[in-house]
């Protein structure tokens, strides 16, 4: 069979596209950066791809709220294409700003045609943008196809609006029960209740990433594409450099799943 075709969605303010492209290429995919305008003008078609990625950045400046404007654009102008893409078994990955877009477009926590009212991403508790490395524990029960076989990861976050928030009025436990949590912020020992700065933004339930019930739509605040080689690890000069970084398996999993599907 041919190569796994991956679409990297570009919009004004996207800025993690190149490293995301590199990660998928090294994982064996054929990658096409596609501007949202090309999809809207029907010059390119989502249905020609196996994987759609919304990379990190500050789309439309994150004006109003992070990812909101691109989310509306996707929902209103490409909503049906996305629905068909998911129906046909496509994979969707949203990293950082891409996660914010997926949530605000109503693609996560479950694909629907309105913005989610059961989850949002809001301003970090610290009130500021922060770039730091975080320890992540993977929920072993998660159906997420991107994290199969991964137990822990060490990845950087870099965001100002990454706090996972659920509605207050239905109670936290019920709010969380709607979410398929994939990744939890933890400390170096895997303890998921370690507080700031281990949980860098105050996310409820220490949630760093979620997927839909099929496990094929995955959004996360940390950046796996920024840790695909050993010398990206902040302490490689102390521990020696591994060949691959912790995030690389996410891309391998996606490509392998798409090949099998």
């Amino acid at each position: 069979m041919g190569k796994v075709r991956t679409l990297i969605l570009l919009a004004p303010g996207t800025n993690c596209d190149v490293e995301t492209e590199v990660a998928f290429q090294q994982a064996g995919a054929e990658v096409s950066p596609v501007h949202i305008g090309e999809l809207i003008r029907r010059e390119k078609r989502l249905s020609d791809y196996h994987i759609m990625v919304i990379p990190g950045g500050f789309t439309y400046g994150d004006d109003i709220s992070a990812g909101k404007v691109l989310a509306n654009e996707l929902r209103l102008k490409l909503g049906e294409d996305i629905e068909r893409f998911v129906e046909k078994g496509g994979l969707i990955l949203g990293i950082c700003n891409g996660f914010q877009v997926l949530v605000k477009a109503g693609i996560l926590p479950e694909l629907s045609n309105t913005a989610s009212s059961s989850l949002t991403l809001s301003v970090n508790d610290s009130g500021r943008f922060e770039c730091r490395w975080v320890y992540l524990s993977v929920n072993p029960e998660s159906p997420c196809v991107f994290t199969k076989g991964i137990a822990h990861m060490y990845l950087p976050v870099a965001h100002g609006e990454g706090k996972v928030v659920v509605p207050r009025d239905i109670g936290l436990a019920r709010g969380l029960s709607h979410l398929n949590a994939v990744l939890y912020y933890s400390d170096e020992h895997g303890n998921t209740n370690a507080g700031y700065p281990y949980n860098p933004n105050g996310s409820v339930g220490n949630i760093a990433g979620i997927c839909d019930s099929s496990g094929r739509i995955f959004g996360l605040m940390p950046h796996p594409e920024r840790h695909i080689r050993g010398t990206q690890h902040p302490q490689w000069t102390r521990r020696g450099a591994e060949d691959y970084g912790d995030g690389f398996q996410v891309f391998l999993n996606a490509v392998e799943w798409a090949i099998r599907a």
């Binding site: 800025n15 993690c16 190149v18 490293e19 590199v22 990190g56 500021r128 943008f129 922060e130 770039c131 730091r132 490395w133 950087p156 870099a158 950046h223 594409e225 920024r226 695909i228 010398t231 990206q232 902040p234 302490q235 000069t237 102390r238």
Partner: peptide
């Protein structure tokens, strides 16, 4: 200050502005 700058974007950093056991 340093943490409020994105020093990881583009994925190229080899030696970061903050280093050591606890970064």
């Amino acid at each position: 200050v340093i943490r409020q700058y994105d020093h990881e974007v583009q994925g190229g950093s080899v030696l970061k502005p903050l280093v050591g056991k606890n970064n």
